[in-house]
Each structure stands twice: as structure tokens, then as C-alpha cells.
Simulated assay, not measured.
Amino acid sequence: MKLVLLGYMASGKSTVGRLLARHLDVKFIDLDEYIEAHQKKSIKNIFSEHGEIFFRKLEHQLLSEVLDKDESIILSTGGGTPCYGNNMETILNKSDHSIYLNLGIPNLVERIVKGKDKRPLVKNIEDAELPEFVGKHLFERRPYYAKAKHILDCNGDDPDTTVNKIRSLL
């Protein structure tokens, strides 16, 4: 079984993915961590040294590599992964389940503010400007996320509740 979690930053993809993998006794892979291990440098440094085009090509290559492996996995993608190249088609064609962890702007902003210093994309954005920033991004990204086989409303849910919702889908 190959299950891919997608959604906006702070939607819980990595947290839920790790918990779900433990429950199902399968391997968990965070695509961003996989890319960093492959390149032996942070995503931030990959972007600054090689640019976004290089990163997106690498991201697609490694997404395909992970999904081509003959093993059961839970994969969490980066927030932008489904939105570039033909990554969403790759996810749909090479996974058994793709699940969009859908949260509204207020819930996302609340989560992002808590860990803002660890998120380069929003680190320098004032808290008051975050709702507009997130809203604009979601408007652009939702059409890609919405192609997932399952759309899961996660508003107000803790990670265990989300894991249980996913388990009931399988």
C-alpha cells in the first residue's frame, strides 16, 4: 500500500503520517527530509544554491523514486509538491490512496504562527498579514489538492482523530 498525504503547510502531514505509519506498521517517508538526505543539505540551501527550478525537478525525480519502490509506505509531501510539474498525476497514478488534509485559513494560521520561525516561507511575514498570505496560496493550490482521492476535513481535529479518520477510509 502506498498512501500519500498532501495539504498546505502546517496541515499536519508529517505528524499524522508518522502516527499513521506506526498504527499500520509501515514505513514513513517525509519527502522534504528524503530530499535533504539525498542532497546532504537543507531545502533552504538547495533553493539558495541551485534555485527553484532545480529543486522542483529534483523533487519530482525523488517523488517518483519513492513511489516506485516495492514497499508499503506513508508519504508526506511538501505543501507545494502537488502543484508543480506533473507531480499530482504521479501521486494519483503511483499511489493507492492520496489524502488532502483540508483545513481552513483560521486553523492553518493558528498552527503556522506557533512554528513560524521554522518555516522559511512565512518567517518574515507579520502575523496580521498571514491570513491573506495563506488565503492567496490556498486559492492557487486547492485545485491541485482537490484532485486527491480523499479530501479529509481536519478542522478542529487533533492528530489522533485525523489518523482514525484516515484508518476508516482504508
Results as ranks from 00 to 15, higher is better:
residue 159 P to N: 06
residue 83 C to H: 00
residue 136 K to A: 12
residue 86 N to A: 05
residue 126 E to R: 15
residue 126 E to D: 15
residue 139 F to R: 11
residue 120 P to E: 03
residue 81 T to V: 09
residue 32 D to F: 07
residue 98 S to N: 11
residue 43 I to T: 03
residue 126 E to H: 14
residue 71 E to L: 03
residue 43 I to L: 12
residue 161 T to I: 14
residue 69 K to A: 05
residue 159 P to A: 09
residue 104 G to F: 04
residue 132 E to A: 14
residue 31 L to N: 06
residue 130 L to V: 13
residue 102 N to C: 11
residue 90 T to N: 05
residue 164 N to H: 15
residue 92 L to R: 07
residue 163 V to Y: 12
residue 105 I to S: 03
residue 151 I to Y: 02
residue 130 L to Y: 11
residue 155 N to S: 07
residue 71 E to D: 02
residue 155 N to Q: 03
residue 149 K to F: 13
residue 61 Q to G: 01
residue 37 A to N: 13
residue 162 T to A: 14
residue 119 R to V: 07
residue 81 T to Q: 05
residue 112 I to C: 07
residue 90 T to M: 06
residue 130 L to C: 11
residue 54 F to Q: 02
residue 63 L to E: 01
residue 76 S to K: 04
residue 95 S to M: 07
residue 115 G to Q: 11
residue 51 G to R: 02
residue 99 I to A: 12
residue 54 F to H: 11
residue 30 D to A: 02
residue 106 P to I: 09
residue 84 Y to S: 06
residue 165 K to R: 15
residue 117 D to S: 14
residue 87 N to E: 08
residue 154 C to G: 04
residue 128 A to S: 14
residue 74 I to S: 05
residue 112 I to K: 03
residue 157 D to G: 02
residue 99 I to M: 11
residue 125 I to C: 12
residue 58 L to V: 08
residue 151 I to C: 12
residue 56 R to E: 03
residue 136 K to C: 08
residue 80 G to K: 03
residue 78 G to Y: 08
residue 147 K to T: 10
residue 136 K to Y: 12
residue 31 L to M: 08
residue 105 I to K: 02
residue 149 K to G: 14
residue 101 L to D: 03
residue 68 D to I: 01
residue 151 I to Q: 13
residue 146 A to R: 13
residue 39 Q to Y: 08
residue 143 P to C: 07
residue 96 D to H: 12
residue 73 I to N: 01
residue 109 V to K: 11
residue 52 E to L: 07
residue 140 E to N: 14
residue 76 S to E: 04
residue 127 D to E: 15
residue 160 D to R: 10
residue 34 Y to W: 09
residue 88 M to K: 00
residue 83 C to D: 01
residue 89 E to W: 01
residue 43 I to Q: 04
residue 22 R to M: 10
residue 116 K to Y: 05
residue 150 H to Y: 15
residue 137 H to D: 09
residue 66 V to E: 03
residue 128 A to V: 15
residue 61 Q to S: 13
residue 152 L to K: 10
residue 86 N to F: 00
residue 71 E to V: 11
residue 20 L to V: 09
residue 126 E to Q: 15
residue 116 K to N: 09
residue 107 N to E: 15
residue 133 F to G: 10
residue 121 L to A: 08
residue 31 L to S: 06
residue 104 G to M: 07
residue 58 L to P: 09
residue 84 Y to R: 02
residue 66 V to N: 00
residue 136 K to D: 12
residue 47 F to R: 04
residue 31 L to I: 05
residue 112 I to F: 09
residue 34 Y to M: 01
residue 56 R to M: 06
residue 158 D to T: 12
residue 120 P to N: 07
residue 57 K to Y: 12
residue 59 E to H: 08
residue 134 V to M: 14
residue 101 L to H: 06
residue 39 Q to N: 12
residue 96 D to P: 01
residue 96 D to F: 07
residue 92 L to C: 06
residue 94 K to G: 09
residue 144 Y to L: 03
residue 122 V to I: 14
residue 59 E to R: 03
residue 71 E to C: 02
residue 43 I to K: 02
residue 30 D to C: 01
residue 158 D to M: 10
residue 153 D to H: 04
residue 64 S to D: 01
residue 131 P to I: 12
residue 70 D to W: 00
residue 69 K to F: 00
residue 47 F to K: 08
residue 162 T to P: 07
residue 132 E to D: 14
residue 132 E to M: 13
residue 136 K to N: 14
residue 26 V to D: 00
residue 82 P to I: 09
residue 62 L to M: 06
residue 78 G to C: 05
